[in-house]
C-alpha cells in the first residue's frame, strides 16, 4: 500500500482550517474512538472558547482542552478518566467557576443529536422529571404529551447541532468513507454535526468493495476529511485494535492535579506529538 500523497504531518497541519474560536465540538466517549491525535493541531491552532458536547461522557481529551483554557462550556453526562479516576482540570474548572457546565444524562445527549440527524428541532424523552439535571437546564422544556388523554408530562430536548465532530476509527478509504463498525454513536455525531474530521488507523482502497465492510461504513457524505494516523487514539484504546494505556492515564491524573503539573504534562505531550508525527507544536 502506498501512502497518500500528502503526508500525515501535512494533513494534520491542514486540519487547522477546520478549527475556529467559538465553535461547538462533539467528542466521543473514551471507549468509542477518541481522536487524541487531533488534540495537538487543535491546540496549536490557537483557537478557543469551545462549547464541548461529550457523546455522552467526556474524558482525557475534554480535560486537556479545559486545562489549556480553550473551553467556554461543556455539555456532558459525566467527566471521568475511568479507572484512572476523576478528570482533574474539569474538577478544578468547576470549582473555580471558569467554565459553564451543562449537566445532562446520556440518553438526552443521544436524543439531541438524533433530532439533529433527522433535521427535527427537538425530540421528546422519558425520565428526568423531578431531577436537578432537568431543573438546571433552562434549554429543556416540559410539556404535556399532546397524544395522551390523561396528563402526561414529557421532557423536550432541543436538537444538538455541533459545528465539528472529531473521532478516530479503524479504517478509512480513498473516497473518504470511514468504517465505524458497531460504534454507531460515531455515525450519529457525524450526521448531526455540520462538519466531521476523522482520523483512522489505516487507509484501504475501497470500503464498499465488500458487504462486510460496507455495512459498518459511514459514507464520505458525512466526512469532510480523513487522515491516516496509526495509534491515533492513544493513550486511549481503539475497540478491536489495541487496548488503552492505563498507566499513562494514571500519570496524567496525578500530574494534572495542579495547574503547574498540567502545564508540564502538556508541554511534554505536545513535544512528543511533534516528534512522532512531525506536526508543529
Amino acid at each position: 500500500m502506498s501512502r497518500p500523497p500528502p503526508s500525515t504531518r501535512d494533513q494534520l497541519a491542514q486540519a487547522a482550517t477546520f478549527f475556529q474560536s467559538g465553535m461547538s465540538l462533539a467528542l466521543p466517549v473514551d471507549y468509542a474512538g477518541v481522536s487524541m491525535a487531533l488534540t495537538w493541531p487543535l491546540l496549536a491552532s490557537g483557537t478557543k472558547d469551545f462549547d464541548l458536547v461529550c457523546v455522552p461522557t467526556g474524558g482525557l481529551q475534554a480535560d486537556i482542552l479545559i486545562g489549556a483554557g480553550r473551553v467556554r462550556s461543556i455539555e456532558t453526562s459525566a467527566m471521568t478518566l475511568g479507572e484512572a479516576g476523576g478528570a482533574p482540570c474539569f474538577n478544578r474548572a468547576v470549582r473555580e467557576g471558569s467554565i459553564v457546565i451543562r449537566d445532562a444524562t446520556c440518553p438526552a445527549i443521544h436524543a439531541g443529536l438524533q433530532a439533529a440527524q433527522r433535521g427535527a428541532p427537538f425530540t421528546a424523552m422519558r425520565g428526568l422529571l423531578g431531577t436537578d439535571v432537568l431543573a438546571q437546564r433552562n434549554d429543556w422544556r416540559v410539556i404535556d404529551n399532546p397524544f395522551s388523554d390523561a396528563p402526561d408530562p414529557v421532557v423536550l430536548i432541543p436538537a444538538i447541532r455541533p459545528d465539528l465532530a472529531l473521532f478516530h476509527c479503524p479504517l478509512g478509504d480513498r473516497q473518504g468513507n470511514v468504517w465505524i463498525g458497531r460504534r454507531r454513536e460515531l455515525a450519529t455525531m457525524a450526521y448531526a454535526a455540520r462538519r466531521s474530521l476523522v482520523t483512522v488507523e489505516r487507509l484501504v482502497d475501497d470500503l464498499f468493495a465488500t458487504e462486510e465492510t460496507a455495512a459498518g461504513t459511514l459514507p464520505a457524505l458525512y466526512v469532510d476529511q480523513v487522515i491516516e494516523v496509526p495509534q491515533g487514539a492513544r493513550p486511549y484504546g481503539l475497540w478491536g485494535v489495541y487496548g488503552g494505556d492505563l498507566p499513562a492515564l494514571k500519570r496524567y491524573a496525578a500530574e494534572a492535579r495542579t495547574p503547574e503539573g498540567f502545564a508540564a504534562w502538556l508541554e511534554e505531550a505536545q513535544a512528543e506529538a511533534a516528534g512522532i508525527r512531525g506536526g508543529a507544536p
Binding site: 476523576g86 468547576v94 470549582r95 473555580e96 449537566d103 444524562t105 440518553p107 422519558r126 425520565g127
Partner: peptide, 27 residues
C-alpha cells in the same frame, strides 16, 4: 446524587456526573 457535594454547580466536591441514571431509574 452522582454530581457533587455543596451548592451546584461550584460545590466543594464534584463527582463525574449523572451518566444515564436520570433516565434508567425511571424505566
Amino acid at each position: 446524587n452522582l454530581v457533587g457535594v455543596g451548592d451546584y454547580p461550584n460545590g466543594k466536591v464534584r463527582w463525574p456526573g449523572s451518566f444515564g441514571s436520570s433516565y434508567l431509574y425511571f424505566v
